[in-house]
Amino acid sequence: MDRQEAERLAKLLKAVADPARLRLLSIIHSAPEGEVCVCDLVEPLGLTQPTVSHHLKVLTDAGLLTRERRGTWAYYRSVPEGWSSLGALFG
């Protein structure tokens, strides 16, 4: 593994090394519609909207989620390649 790949994987692992982020990934990945509005993530986590948004940004920056803005709300989807990268570490 070269340095660039090691840094990318370290960023990915750091992003998922938080219980709230793991819960967010689980909720979004298992959503029947394939996406979840940030407004629907606050209550299940019991965190404030700014805190949830921060965690979502970290996951998006790590390549695990994508974000689409619709009006005042942001909708998040899982990125299959991000899940593949995680799976490759443990497979």
Rank of each mutant, 00 (worst) to 15 (best):
R3K: 12
Q4N: 07
E5R: 14
E5K: 14
E7I: 12
L9I: 09
K11I: 09
K14I: 13
V16R: 02
A17H: 14
R21T: 06
L22I: 14
R23E: 05
S26L: 14
I27E: 05
I28A: 03
H29M: 07
P32A: 11
E33F: 02
G34H: 00
E35T: 01
E35Q: 10
V36Q: 15
V38R: 07
V38W: 06
C39L: 13
C39S: 11
V42G: 04
P44T: 13
L45D: 02
L47I: 03
Q49K: 14
P50S: 09
P50F: 09
T51R: 12
T51K: 12
S53L: 10
S53Y: 06
S53T: 14
H55Y: 14
L56E: 03
K57D: 08
V58G: 05
L59F: 00
D61Q: 05
G63F: 00
L64R: 04
T66Y: 08
E68T: 07
E68G: 03
G71M: 11
T72E: 11
A74K: 08
R77S: 12
P80F: 02
E81C: 01
G82N: 02
W83G: 06
S84D: 14
S84Y: 01
S84T: 11
S85M: 12
L86C: 01
L86A: 00
L86H: 00
L86D: 02
G87C: 09
A88C: 04
L89A: 04
